[in-house]
């Protein structure tokens, strides 16, 4: 299958290893990956901060770049949530019904990584090996906007050597929330403190999730505490072939 990768601006710029892992995972599963040029940001930061007018050119560009592909995959529940649930809404609010229809169309063919693997490709065992103790944080937009449910957990359970530990109060927000993390930094940090405590309680070596943004929050907090627990994107674990010790 030919898959268009929407790598997302955050992964492209700050976490390129997540994009490379997504490519290597999909290619290992026998699919052709293309990275359409001209892609940048889905506009979610603008939309969720109230700057819908500023988001419009980004939505237009995103829709143009990806409208030619049957399947678009992004390693981010949050960006896919925005593409699927916000793009058409913002276009309609601006009175651009043509864009709304086209954006809606792209939205129906855009998938978060775990959705794509389980629902579209029908695989739960991706042939990965990762001999470490891991806990999974279900990010809010994957959980409640996309309803990915236990798909990421099903994928993780099939990884060789991986010791999956349940995260207490897993469904609680990590406190990222885009510009919320800066505008309401104190509340965001209070939410992060509880999330970190739960992560540390699991004694996991690695905390994983399907969104680099939330991992930047959790990982940023753990790093500040020199806590010794790493964060890795789900794609990095699923791409791993690290042999058992």
């Amino acid at each position: 299958m030919r898959v268009a990768l929407f790598v997302t601006c955050l992964v492209d710029t700050l976490f390129p290893q997540v994009g490379r892992a997504t490519v290597s995972l999909l290619e290992r599963l026998g699919h052709e990956v293309v990275v359409p040029s001209g892609q940048s940001c889905c506009g979610q930061p603008q939309i969720n901060t109230g700057y819908q007018r500023e988001a419009l050119p980004l939505i237009r560009r995103h829709t143009d770049v990806f409208s030619a592909y049957d399947a678009v995959v992004a390693p981010s529940g949050s960006c896919v949530g925005s593409i699927r649930h916000q793009h058409a809404m913002v276009a309609r609010r601006a009175g651009d019904d043509g864009l709304a229809t086209a954006a809606h169309d792209v939205g129906t063919r855009t998938y978060e990584l775990s959705e794509f693997l389980v629902d579209v490709l029908g695989v739960e065992d991706v042939g990965a090996s990762f001999p470490h103790r891991v806990t999974y944080h279900p990010t809010c937009h994957s959980l409640r906007m996309l309803r990915v449910g236990d798909k990421p957990l099903r994928l993780l359970r099939n990884v060789r050597g991986l010791d999956l530990v349940e995260l207490p109060a897993a469904d609680q927000c990590c406190g990222f929330g885009g510009t919320f993390a800066v505008k309401n930094a104190d509340t965001s940090t209070a939410m992060l403190a509880d999330k970190m405590q739960h992560v540390l309680d699991t004694e996991a070596e690695v905390c994983t999730a399907g969104d680099s943004s939330c991992l930047m929050q959790i990982g940023g907090g753990l790093s500040r505490l020199r806590a010794g627990t790493r964060t890795l994107h789900l794609a990095e674990i699923l791409a791993s072939t690290e042999p058992a010790a």
Partner: peptide
């Protein structure tokens, strides 16, 4: 942000640069 959280150091090469370097440019 940095009052309570670190940020990762930006990588030497973005994903796009890696892709272009290893695969050449695409449509």
């Amino acid at each position: 942000w940095t009052a309570s959280r670190d940020l990762p150091r930006p990588p030497e090469e973005t994903f796009s640069e890696w892709w272009t370097r290893t695969r050449g440019s695409q449509p």
